[in-house]
Simulated scan of single mutants.
Amino acid sequence: MTVRAKFKVASVTEQEGGLKTATLHPVTSGSPENEQFFKWTPSGQIQLGTINPASAEHFVPGRQFYVDFMPVEA
Rank of each mutant, 00 (worst) to 15 (best):
M1Q: 06
T2Y: 13
T2H: 09
T2R: 15
T2C: 01
V3M: 11
R4Q: 10
R4P: 01
R4E: 14
R4F: 00
A5Q: 08
A5P: 00
A5I: 10
F7Q: 01
F7K: 03
F7H: 03
K8T: 14
K8P: 03
K8C: 13
V9G: 03
A10C: 08
A10I: 10
A10H: 12
S11G: 13
S11A: 12
V12Q: 07
T13A: 11
E14P: 03
E14Y: 02
E14C: 00
Q15D: 11
E16L: 10
G17S: 08
G17I: 01
G17H: 12
G18N: 10
L19W: 00
L19F: 01
K20G: 08
T21D: 06
T21P: 00
T21H: 10
A22L: 04
A22K: 09
L24R: 03
L24V: 05
L24W: 00
H25N: 11
H25F: 04
P26G: 05
V27N: 05
V27I: 04
V27C: 11
V27E: 08
V27R: 07
T28Q: 12
T28V: 08
S29G: 07
S29F: 02
G30C: 01
G30T: 01
G30A: 03
G30F: 00
S31M: 06
S31V: 05
S31R: 09
S31Q: 07
P32R: 13
P32N: 07
P32F: 06
E33C: 05
E33Q: 15
E33F: 09
N34F: 10
N34K: 10
E35R: 14
E35K: 14
Q36Y: 09
Q36N: 15
Q36V: 08
F37M: 10
F38I: 00
F38K: 10
F38R: 14
K39L: 13
K39H: 06
W40D: 08
W40E: 11
T41W: 12
P42W: 04
G44E: 06
G44T: 10
G44N: 10
G44I: 04
Q45R: 15
Q45S: 15
Q45K: 12
Q45G: 11
I46H: 03
I46Q: 04
L48T: 06
L48H: 06
L48M: 14
L48D: 05
T50S: 13
T50H: 06
T50G: 06
I51G: 15
N52R: 14
N52V: 06
P53V: 08
P53N: 08
A54Y: 06
S55E: 12
A56T: 05
E57R: 15
E57G: 03
E57L: 11
E57P: 01
H58Q: 10
H58R: 14
H58A: 14
H58I: 05
F59R: 03
P61W: 02
G62F: 03
G62R: 02
G62Y: 05
R63H: 15
R63Y: 02
R63Q: 13
R63G: 07
Q64G: 05
Q64L: 11
Q64W: 01
Q64E: 15
F65W: 04
F65E: 07
Y66M: 11
V67L: 11
V67P: 00
D68Y: 07
D68T: 11
F69P: 00
F69R: 01
M70A: 12
M70C: 07
M70T: 11
P71F: 04
P71N: 09
V72L: 13
E73R: 06
E73T: 04
